[in-house]
Structures are given as C-alpha cells and as structure tokens.
Simulated scan of single mutants.
Amino acid sequence: MSKPAARTAPVQRGPAQAPIDAAIVQKAAQWMARLWADDASTAEHAACAQWRAAHPDHERAWRRLQALDDKLQDVPQHAARVLDPAATNTLSRRRALQVLGLAAIATGAIHTARNSESWRILSSDYSTKVGEIREVVLADGTRVVLNTASAIDVRFDGAARDVILRSGEALVTTGRDSAAPARPFTMRSRQGAVRALGTRFMLRQDDDVSHVAVFHGAVEVLPAHALEAPLRLDAGEGTSFSDTHVHPRRAALERDLAWSQGLLIAENMRVQDFLREVGRYRQGLLRCSPEVADMRITGVFPLADTDRALANLKLALPVELAYRTRYWVTVQAR
C-alpha cells in the first residue's frame, strides 16, 4: 500500500496561527485515507495536491496528520496486542486508523480525543514514547530533554520563544537568543507559565499541579489565574503550582535530574511511590498489595530496564513479584 507524499518535519508555529478548523482536518483525513488505498489514481493524487495548495490551513492539517501517522508507526506491536489481541490479527494498522478516524468524525468524538493524554502526545511537535528519554535542540540552541511519555509544542516568533509542555516532564537548558533585543523564553503548562532568566530548569506536568525545579540561573513562576506577582526561584529552589497559587519553596536536588541519565534515585521512598515512578517507564499495570505499600526503599535503579529495577526491589525487601503477564505485575509480601 503506497503512502502519499513525502513527510516533512514539524513546523514551528506562531501565536498568530489559529487552530485548524475541524472541517479542514476532516477533509485532510478523507484525502489521506483515500490515497492510502491500493487503487488510488494519479488523478486523485493530483487533486489532493491541488487541495493542499489551495489554502495554508489545508497544508497545515495535512502535515499534522502525517506527523501523527509517523508517531503511530512507533507504537510497539506487542503493546497493541495487549490492548486487543483479536484486532491485531484482523486489521492492519492503517485500516484500524481509518476506521477509528471515521468513527470519531461520525460520532462527534473529535473534541474528546483532542483533550485526551494520547492525543496531546501524538499531535505534538516533539514527543517520547513510554520508556523513552530524548533530547531535542530548538532553533535558538535551547536543549530540551524529554522524559518518558512527554510532549511539547514549540511556538517561536519575532517577539517571543514559547514552549508548551503538553504532557510529562522536560529538562530545559535555554539557549542564548541571537535576536536583538533577546526574546523572552517561557515554558507553559496547563497550570501556568515559567519564564526563564538564563536558566537550566525542569518542569513536570501532573493532572492538577505542575512542579518546577531550578538548577542554574532563575525563573519566574506565574499561575494562569493568579492575582499575585510572579514568584522568582533561584538555582537550588523548586516549587509546585496550581492554576491559582504557588506552593511554598522547596530544595531542588540534583537527584531530581537522575532520570535524564536513565536512573531513578530512591531515598527512603515508599514502595507505592517507587512503583508509581517505575510504572511511568513501562507498558501495562504495575501495582502493590496494601501490606507492602509503605515499606521503604533506598537505592539506584535503571529506568531503561524496569524488569531489572523490579528484581532489585525484590532483593532489597521481603517482597515477591507476581507476574500475571509481562504487562500486569503485582508486588506483594513474601
């Protein structure tokens, strides 16, 4: 089955570029589904190219769908089988995408999909899969290390450098802007904004709160709906913030950066919290029985090999691992 047109890299978008109309996205999806077919004609390829050239939003929608398809190609086949063993035996990946896409359009589920965690990751400019840690270098030289299952969008223009953390966690080392005057660098989460002041910092997005820690320079933290002035954090300081207020300062520890080296450093950590962190780096369900939840663990554990991390837990504590499947593990008392 042939695939239409060559892929292109994600485009950095400025604030002036409004969201693409849903009808345009639907039309782009229809064209893409048609050109995926084995019997797509030369005339249909030409007509699609003409439609893409008719308006900039047509091309934007096309590129965004292609980027989505690129990322879906990276979904492990074994993970797909865990979710639905029967479906993978009868449907190809692309046929499943067509069916799911048309179903979403027919049932009006587009809004729900766009607000899901999976959509935020798949439709972003840069993202990582579960268990992947990746560094990207932005146009201004800023280095962003993305933790597992993380996603960012980049919006640079002549006046500002904005990065939106859609999901997960990122370690940012800001570049020296060549523009004059230098454009401010701001990283945004769902709860608010962190403005960098020549900085190396980390931002993590959880459901209802964001966490920031500063390792060099300083940042200003401004919740989205705060009434007070921004809070300045200097190197060695961190905090959490909701969309209305900032929590008290805390120490920013270098061990908080261990994940960027593929390690989890646990210091007197509850087993329940340990499993929550390790579970971010593996597919499936990882849980513990109540009698071991509050046991404490100290050590250094590899995030690239979570089975090994779990085996080390078993060596350190009187627990055992019950594998229902490779993707369903329970830690229980020995």
Rank of each mutant, 00 (worst) to 15 (best):
T112D: 10
A322T: 11
Q261L: 04
I152T: 09
D153L: 08
H58K: 10
G262I: 02
D39R: 10
L102I: 00
R270V: 02
A213D: 10
F215E: 08
T239W: 09
C288G: 05
T107N: 13
V82E: 13
A49L: 09
A109D: 11
T148L: 05
A160E: 07
A79T: 10
A182P: 03
V331M: 10
K314R: 15
L285A: 07
S123Y: 07
H216I: 00
A9W: 11
D74M: 08
Q26K: 11
A311T: 15
T186F: 01
F185G: 02
T186I: 11
A213K: 03
D307S: 08
R195K: 11
L264Q: 02
S2W: 11
G101P: 00
L227W: 00
A53S: 15
R176Y: 03
A16Q: 12
A226W: 06
T148N: 06
R296F: 04
A322W: 06
A235C: 06
Q66N: 12
P248R: 11
A104F: 02
D157A: 10
A103D: 15
R166C: 01
A218C: 10
Q12L: 06
D177W: 02
M187F: 03
S240E: 14
A316N: 00
T325M: 05
A109I: 00
Y327W: 15
D305R: 12
L65N: 09
A149R: 13
R166P: 00
P230K: 04
G299N: 04
D273L: 02
N268M: 05
D207T: 15
Y323D: 03
A6R: 10
A22I: 09
E267S: 12
R280W: 08
A218V: 06
D21V: 05
W31L: 09
G141M: 06
E267H: 12
A182G: 10
I105E: 11
R282D: 04
D206I: 00
D208A: 14
V144A: 14
E135D: 15
R155S: 15
T142Q: 04
I20N: 08
N115D: 13
D234A: 15
A9R: 13
L263N: 06
S260Q: 11
H45N: 08
R93F: 06
G108E: 09
I121F: 01
L197V: 08
L171V: 04
Q73F: 01
L72R: 13
E254R: 11
L227I: 05
S167H: 12
H55M: 02
V329Q: 06
D207M: 02
A54W: 07
R60N: 13
D177F: 02
I164N: 07
A16K: 07
G101V: 04
H245K: 08
W119F: 15
N312W: 12
L91K: 13
L285S: 09
D243W: 00
Q50F: 08
R232N: 07
